[in-house]
Structures are given as structure tokens and as C-alpha cells.
Nucleic acid binder design. Sequence first.
DNA 1: ACATTAAGTGATT
DNA 2: AATCACTTAATGT
Length: 216
Amino acid sequence: MQPLVDKKQLLHDTIGYILEEELIEEMSKIAKIRETVQDEIIIHVGDELKMIPIVVYGSIKVSRENPDGDELLLYYIEGGDTCAMTLQCCVRKTDSQIKATSMEPSLLLMFPSEYMQLWMDKYRSWREYILQSYHTRMLELMETIDEIAFMRLDERLIKYLTDQAKLLGNLELHHTHQQIADDLHSSRVVISRLLKQLENKGAIQIRRNRIILKEI
DNA sequence: ACATTAAGTGATT
DNA sequence: AATCACTTAATGT
């Protein structure tokens, strides 16, 4: 039994401002609901994507991953957004180049990938939505490239912490040093030392599995 | 009480 | 800034 969720209402609330009524109507009929728990991996590298996801609420992090398990966080996806990489995969029928992880309990609406093309032809608002999505993702990618190229690790760490806090709406982060090291593609020891410095400066407090920011 | 996992530290490159 | 090798601390069984 499908849970009592008004998909049409959800669509209205998340992307209703940009999509036309007719499309919302069509989408609400075929949408599948997917709920994720914290740290659930939604997409693995190499997965063949058969569904386009749109995030209703929660937050998803998208990272690059090589076969050795080395990682690098690329950008986040929040409510109302979709994943640009997914869109590409759906059209070209290629495997996923990225990994998507749920950062908190989240709700996604899933649409079979064949609708991607169909709606492209049929709805002007869908084209705009997709283009806009690509654009913001592109900007975010450039931002992270800047960070990697020009910022020192301690600055990146501070940005990472505040970004996470903002995204999760909580000054307390439940991350291990290892997880942070993975996201920033650094090593646990280095992160531990930098965090220690921040704690000495009074910017944060460190507990096991927990980092408490003083302010954003 | 013991095992496991997270975090801290000094030395080396 | 990364890695090694080890210690110490917190937590689960």
C-alpha cells in the first residue's frame, strides 16, 4: 500500500514555481516515492540509471569515486533539485560516473528515465528546469574546483564544516574525522590535527563522532 | 573485562 | 600535507 502522500502537492511545493500545471499533473501520476536514511548510498559508480530522481526534502551529496575507493565531494543537492549527472546518464544510457549519498533522511520522487526525452520535447518548462539545473550544478562544480586549486586545506575544512551545518540546519555535525577526510580527499590524521587547531582557536568543540560549531 | 573503533601524537618524507 | 606506527580514549557486547 502506497503511503498517504499527495505527490501532486509535493511537486507543487518543490518545483511548482517553474513547471507547468499539465506537466505536474502528468508527473504526479507516474512518480514513485523513495525514502532514504542517513548515509544511504543512492547511486554507486557504475550503476545503470533507470530513474530520474528529484529531491523533495533532505540533502544528497554527490561525489567522485575511483576504483581504489578514493573519494572527492563534488556538490550537494537539496529540495527541488535534480541530479545533472543522472540526466545525462538517462539520455545516453551510460553508467553513472558519480556516487550519491543521502546525508540525512530524505524523500525523493523517481521518474522512469524515458520520460526525460518525452518531456524535453513536450514541455518548455521542463527544458528550462533541466537547463537551470545544469547551470547551477556547473557553477557549484567551478566553486569546488576553485576550492581545491586555490584554498589551503584548513580553509577548505572550515568551508566544509559551515556548508554541512547550513545544509543540515544544525551546528552539531555527526561526522567522524575519517568521513571528513574522505569527502575532502585528505587523510584522517591531517583532518584530526586541523580540527584540533580549530578547537584551540575556540571555533569548534570536538567530541567523539561529533563536532560542535560555535557559529556559522 | 574485553574487543572494536575513533581520535591523538611524534617522527619521517 | 601525507604516511607510518603507535598510544589513548570512548563505546559496545
